[in-house]
Amino acid sequence: MRWAATRPLPVSTANWPVAEMNVHVADSGAALKVRGLSVAYGDKPALSSVDAAFQQGRMSAIVGPNGAGKSTLLKAAMGIIPSISGDALFFGRPLDEVRSRIAYVPQRASVDWDFPATVIDVVLMGLYRSLGPFKLIGRGQRALALNCLEEVDMVSLADRQIGQLSGGQQQRVFIARALAQKADLLLLDEPFAGVDAATEKTIITLLKKLVREGGTAVAVHHDLSTVTAYFDDVLVLNVRRIANGPVDKAFTEEHLAEAYGGRLVQPEPELA
């Protein structure tokens, strides 16, 4: 896929109604807030002026049909793909000022698992940023990485080459790498795609624990049947924002019908 070379345009706030400005100032508790985010692949729009906020200390899902722009929203917010307009604030600040507080878990299918690396090598990658170029990996770092692996029940496979793992085990390695970053906000792109039930349980239990301890998690999610059980808040998305808020308010049949059209049946789980 080739992206159009676009530069984010400066967002003019001049013509915003004052009242709306105040609303934005009021909920400064957002771990991630996107404003007027528009993204296109070439001339095909993927997101159209989306406003959304994900509150601190909450677990949020981004749901919507295939091609709704769920992953795109996270990627554009993280600056992985360029946006046409709009911006994203993390804890009220631009990304570069708070990058170390954010951990991003990409889709499992986005990397080559034949890469020469063991499980613990991948987890240690989460520490690269804090280590800088010269510090060597010592006993402390290894212990930390093993702790993170313990959290996802992967210690016993720490020295396996990553290609030998099952899909669920690979996903847990990615989660462990994010844990090693010791971030306040976890962004997860389809963490439950193609994983076994045990892995799903391990991951959700862990995320709930992190959120209880004050962390924030935002996950692109496919399985509508588990939204209520897993998440506090939800963003219902289909290129534009349809609803955003607590699950009981935003995750309604009406909103889902709007997002999924007439065919409000359980969509097939999609393998990324």
Partner: peptide, 13 residues
């Protein structure tokens, strides 16, 4: 990082 996981590399700045 860039060789293994470009997306993650980007998000690490």
């Amino acid at each position: 990082l860039v060789c293994f996981d470009e997306t993650f590399a980007r998000t690490s700045g």
